Computed example of a mutant assay.
Amino acid sequence: MPARTPRSSTPARRTDRRTDRRPSTANHHGIHLLRSGTAVRGLVESAALGPDSLVLDLGAGPGTLTAPLARTGARVLAIERDPGFLARLERRFGDHPNVRVVAGDLTRVPLPGRPFQVVASIPYDLSTLLLRRLLTDANGGGSSLAAADLVIEWGFAQRVSRAAPRDLETAWWGAAYELRVVRRVRAAAFTPAPSVDSAHLRVRPRPGLTGRRVRRLLYAMLAEAFRCPDQPARTVVAEVAGRSAAGRILGESGLDRGVRAGAVPADRWAGVARSALGLSRR
């Protein structure tokens, strides 16, 4: 499962000085293969797969994750675009009844229509594009993602899992999904070692946000909140749900009426949206 040297998706400032001082290993193809058995076991155990599960190994490489995923009994789609890796995957898993090798770009390959999980080590420069495919869902449709356990660049993982997001996109991800850094994955866990550490990011949908109506309501509140982050959260709720209901909704959500919209944690916006929908149904 290759991870490529970070470009656009990697924050300019890293959170750990030790990673800044680590020399970069020459790697003209930009591919770093996860080789840590501990990291692989952690990803697979976190996914908690079973025979009824459908799991995507995006950027499967030589099949380091594909093999333990297949042993869970889940149906595995090993997606890879590199011809050399594809040939190795076909030789290794061609006879496995629960593994299908798919030639495709992880940023373009069609996603399943039924609920699916993703367990993968993601190329650094594709992290943002991939999370957009899996998590961005402003109109209440989108993918059928049931869970994801991803290895991504450490600084990027810290940014997207921050309680108080910096922008609308990461606010939506954090409000609709629980994004939690499970553990640090050191650069030495890859061959060749990249210049920065990675993280195991656990992604799970938040409960009570599966309906189109509540998701649209949530997105409308977030869009208004990040249009003017310094306005009170009460103003945001009043704009979307009505002035008469704003105070009650905030009270049910446990938010102070004067709190600044941009300071509200992403998961609290999810509670606001659920309260607003529940009030509208009474």
Rank of each mutant, 00 (worst) to 15 (best):
A187N: 13
R166F: 01
F156R: 02
V160T: 02
G155P: 09
E169S: 05
Y177M: 07
A164S: 10
A163K: 13
L150A: 10
E178N: 15
E169Y: 09
A176I: 00
E153A: 08
A187H: 09
R159W: 05
A157I: 06
G174T: 12
R186Q: 12
Y177S: 11
A175C: 07
G155E: 10
A163T: 11
A171F: 02
R162K: 15
W154C: 00
L179Y: 14
R180E: 15
E169T: 07
G155M: 13
S161G: 03
I152W: 00
R180T: 07
R162G: 00
T170N: 14
A175W: 01
R184T: 14
L179G: 12
R159N: 01
W172A: 11
A171R: 15
L150M: 04
V181M: 09
V182I: 10
W172K: 10
R180H: 08
R166Q: 14
A176D: 12
R180D: 06
V151W: 03
V181W: 13
D167S: 07
P165W: 01
V185C: 09
W154H: 04
A175L: 03
A157P: 02
A164V: 15
W154F: 12
R159G: 02
A187P: 08
A175H: 09
A171P: 05
A157D: 00
I152N: 05
A176H: 03
R162N: 02
S161I: 10
E153W: 03
A157Q: 07
Y177I: 13
R162T: 07
A175Q: 08
L179P: 11
V151H: 03
A163S: 08
R166E: 13
L168D: 04
A175V: 01
L150H: 12
R166A: 15
S161V: 05
L168R: 10
L150W: 06
R186I: 04
I152Y: 01
V160E: 02
A163M: 04
V181G: 00
R180F: 01
W172N: 10
V185R: 08
R180S: 00
R166M: 10
A163I: 02
V151F: 01
I152T: 10
L179T: 15
L168P: 01
A164F: 03
A175P: 14
P165R: 03
A187D: 12
Q158Y: 00
A164C: 09
A176C: 07
V181S: 00
A187S: 14
A176G: 12
R180Q: 09
W173H: 03
E153D: 12
R162D: 05
Y177R: 13
V182G: 05
L150G: 08
R159K: 15
V160W: 08
G174Q: 09
T170R: 15
A175D: 05
A187Q: 11
L168E: 06
R184W: 06
A164N: 08
R186M: 02
R184S: 08
A187K: 11
L168A: 09
R184M: 11
A164Q: 14
P165Q: 04
G174E: 12
S161K: 09
E169Q: 04
L168K: 13
A175I: 04
